[in-house]
Simulated assay, not measured.
Amino acid sequence: MPKEDYVPTLFSLFRQYGYDGTTLSKISAATGLGKASLYHHFPGGKEDMVASVLDHSDCWLQANVLHLLAGEGSPQARLQKMCEHIHELYAGGTQPCLTAILAMGTGRDLFHDKVKGLLESWIGAIANVLVESGFDKDLAIKRGQDALISIQGALIVAQNLDNASLFQRTIQQLPQVLLHPEEGSEHKQ
């Protein structure tokens, strides 16, 4: 099998255990590959595996979020569809965020720039939709940042309280929150 076939399994492992906690033994058991075969597919070892997982995540983000936000339809509809895809990605708030897990331990130093780029792209795409809706660019960027803070914060709180409905509520309300004009804001009506 080509190495791309193993990326979804690696995604799940790194999302669950992080960079430091995902051992070659766990990878071997989950993929059915011995260490020699793992190094054949991923000559750089775990670092190469995570790079492949992050490339896979980048492709997912491009197809399911960035392309969607830049596409056609009302801003409300595009933001709603983004939230539906995010809901699926995190299994309704029951699965952790890969980028959050990689931000801890050794993974932060190794993958910081790639993760930062993914998040900045997402913030920018949300901001572009808000600018299109009439928001001032600075406020739109702030709201894009706030959107990711809301998503990630809700995910962490929901998982730690064993209450996925907290994440689901946040995701459901997010499009309206993003598009709602603040009193005295720079939003142009």
Rank of each mutant, 00 (worst) to 15 (best):
G45I: 15
A51R: 09
E72H: 10
P75H: 04
G71N: 02
A147V: 01
I126Y: 02
Q76W: 06
L69W: 00
G144H: 03
Q168E: 10
L148P: 00
G134A: 03
M82W: 05
M49Y: 09
L13H: 00
V65I: 08
L69N: 01
A70M: 07
G184W: 02
I171W: 10
D20G: 05
L102D: 07
A147I: 05
I151H: 01
M1C: 11
G92N: 10
Y39K: 08
Q176M: 07
V7A: 08
Q172P: 02
D55C: 01
A100T: 12
S165P: 06
G73F: 03
Y6E: 11
A63F: 06
A77F: 09
G124Y: 04
G144V: 00
C97M: 06
Q172H: 09
K35F: 10
K137V: 15
A29W: 15
E47P: 10
S150W: 01
K114T: 08
V50E: 10
G32Q: 07
N163P: 07
E4K: 08
L69S: 00
K142P: 04
D136G: 02
S74K: 09
L139W: 02
H56M: 11
G45A: 09
V157I: 13
A154R: 01
P75Q: 13
V7I: 15
L110D: 14
Q168S: 11
Q76K: 14
C59E: 13
P43A: 00
A30N: 05
A70Q: 15
A63I: 10
S74M: 05
W122K: 09
E47S: 09
T31N: 06
F11Y: 13
A154V: 10
A30M: 01
D58T: 15
L155N: 11
T9P: 06
G21L: 04
Y90N: 04
R15V: 03
Q176T: 05
E120F: 08
V53F: 14
G124R: 03
A63G: 03
E72K: 13
D109W: 07
E47R: 10
G34V: 03
L89C: 05
V50S: 06
L10N: 07
A30H: 04
L24Q: 11
L68A: 04
Q76P: 04
L33D: 11
S28G: 11
A91Q: 15
H41I: 12
V177Y: 09
Q152E: 12
A51P: 05
M82P: 00
F167Y: 06
V53W: 12
K81F: 04
Q173N: 08
A91I: 13
G45C: 07
P181L: 04
H67T: 07
H180A: 12
G34N: 08
V157F: 10
R108I: 10
V157Q: 07
D55H: 01
M82R: 04
M1S: 15
M82G: 02
Y19N: 06
V53A: 10
W122P: 00
G117I: 03
E47Y: 11
A36V: 15
Y19A: 09
E186H: 06
T106G: 09
R169K: 12
L155I: 06
D146P: 09
N64G: 11
G44Q: 07
V53E: 09
L119F: 12
